[in-house]
Design a protein around this nucleic acid. Sequence first.
DNA 1: ATAAAAACTGAAAAGCTTTTCAAAATTGGA
DNA 2: TCCAATTTTGAAAAGCTTTTCAGTTTTTAT
Lengths: 345, 345
Amino acid sequence: MAGIKDVAARAGVSISTVSRVFNGHENITDEKRKAVLEAASALGYSANSLAASLRRKSSNVVGVLLASQGSPFGTMLHTAIGNTLSDRGYLPMVCSTLGEDDRQDEYVKTLLEMQVGGVIIRPSGSLSITTRHAAVLEREGVPVVFVESAPRKKSVSFVVSANKVGGQLAIRRLWELGHRNIGIMIMPCDVKYHPNRPVSHRLEGALETALELGIADRIVLSPDMPGERFDYGYMAAKRMLREHPELTAVFAMTDMMGTGALYAARETGLSVPEDISVLGYDGLPLSEMTFPPMATVSQSVDLMGQSAADLLITRLEGNETKPAQRTLNPHLIERESLAPAPWTT
Amino acid sequence: MAGIKDVAARAGVSISTVSRVFNGHENITDEKRKAVLEAASALGYSANSLAASLRRKSSNVVGVLLASQGSPFGTMLHTAIGNTLSDRGYLPMVCSTLGEDDRQDEYVKTLLEMQVGGVIIRPSGSLSITTRHAAVLEREGVPVVFVESAPRKKSVSFVVSANKVGGQLAIRRLWELGHRNIGIMIMPCDVKYHPNRPVSHRLEGALETALELGIADRIVLSPDMPGERFDYGYMAAKRMLREHPELTAVFAMTDMMGTGALYAARETGLSVPEDISVLGYDGLPLSEMTFPPMATVSQSVDLMGQSAADLLITRLEGNETKPAQRTLNPHLIERESLAPAPWTT
DNA sequence: ATAAAAACTGAAAAGCTTTTCAAAATTGGA
DNA sequence: TCCAATTTTGAAAAGCTTTTCAGTTTTTAT
């Protein structure tokens, strides 16, 4: 309630001086500074950041546009971004779009009206729509950073994981363990309809390596699933294992689906890893708590979120105006769900 | 970039007229209205909500202070609150406090400076600190609604679940099924140190009913756990089942812990529900995807979040100034993890 | 001791709206 | 046709800061 004016009056100085004190300017006598500080705390002074941002023509609010807050990965990404931002003095304004493009439309407009300093976007379904949104923002001088998946243009900032490498890593490791008949659990409509989705890149890498190693024709793809959910993974895995008893390993594009596969294997009478190995993807905490603990290709979500925030802040603070890009390398975490192929030992 | 002034110039009207058009005022000739709308879209007009809020002395931003964003329950609550708010034209500004009280301190200050219209708080560890924060906000005229757990004062708005009723429900149902030796999985330091935590109320209800039914002395409490995590639940359940082979049912204060118990039972050689029944609490989607699907006392998290947002909006829009309170009733969802006690049948 | 430089301070403008108030235009009735 | 009532419009103030610019005070150098 009490504003800068009240403090000035009480401290017997001008409002300019009060403003300077709170903005950490030099060149203020200790005497006046003390008077201001005292008056402020006596009155319970609270600045009006609306007015400040209005005048300063920049605010420390950062928009965070997140699709599908539902999954654990999304949550962790959100948390990592949010924490980094608020640690560095920015205020994350999180907008869950739930993959609805019109809602995202709305949000972009609102964020623009709020005069946010920058925006971090985790694209939802349609990358092209998101790209257009980003263009609108950038045109108005609001820097945008994509995270997790991004258009392949040199003109945008992004932080992504090397999903293709992850897919390669996975298949190669299974091959080293002697596995030749590998089932891959895929997400809906994979490569064909979603050429830019992270999972598509994973699959691409996996298939490429399979081809290289000469086991491409023995790869089995899981039936199509309507979405990334535990139970879908479970059902898909069950069907796949029933129809393809020759499989000795399953590579799931997602820890969620991997967990489903774990259950399915057990119910099918196969023990993990003696009869069949299971390898997930994401490195969620969840994967460590399954039975048995599940090996997984980990993409460091914390680092990803942090990097995205970093990139944005650099553009916000520095005079750096060029878009920057960063690709993080996934790594394989070995756990008990992985073992040499049964008929190799 | 283009402001109200530019639109006015281009449309050949005064800025007041433009403002009125965009604020849905009556008494504007169709002619001028059309001119304004045309000019606006030609210029790509975007309002400056900072200036608007400053002048109007109210903003449509609502602060959402959430502790422990980590758990699925927190995420779902967050999503429900956020969606309701943005559906109704408000902008949620989510602040994850991770249970750190000093961070929350910081956020309250910032939200106040941002001139938010209201705040929804899911309290973290210390209810007293949170209560003080709420008092500060209310004193400045910012309405506050507590969600999930709240101080017992008549003077604050809140939405909570009848946790005590849930605990009673659980024990009574297990008793009906013939169970007498029931293990209860509790959270850290339960009732003693956290008299207001939801789980404490659950335990209170459970123990009360046990006493009523004359089985209080056969209740076994799990070892203390450092937190609500799957693996803690797993370890605690394992130890409890080993030390108390007489148990025929486990009531877990949380679906997370319940899932851990499910694994533990299986590893101990007990099959669910033939040898032992398991009942969780929360009604998370997770509980439906365990093996076997786990019965649970469901508190409707969506409704909870929505109600909290509703309560706040009512105070924001209506002239309603009195705090309102709402208690939601949990209900038991029967699933395969529940069966009559083995030596009863 | 004095001029020049540096440090500090305050008045006022600017940032973009909303809103009040009064003026202008329109309508209706007699 | 003219007056009163009503509707529509615009000028200007207000909301709270930050920042510029100029003025005042202090310091430094000669």
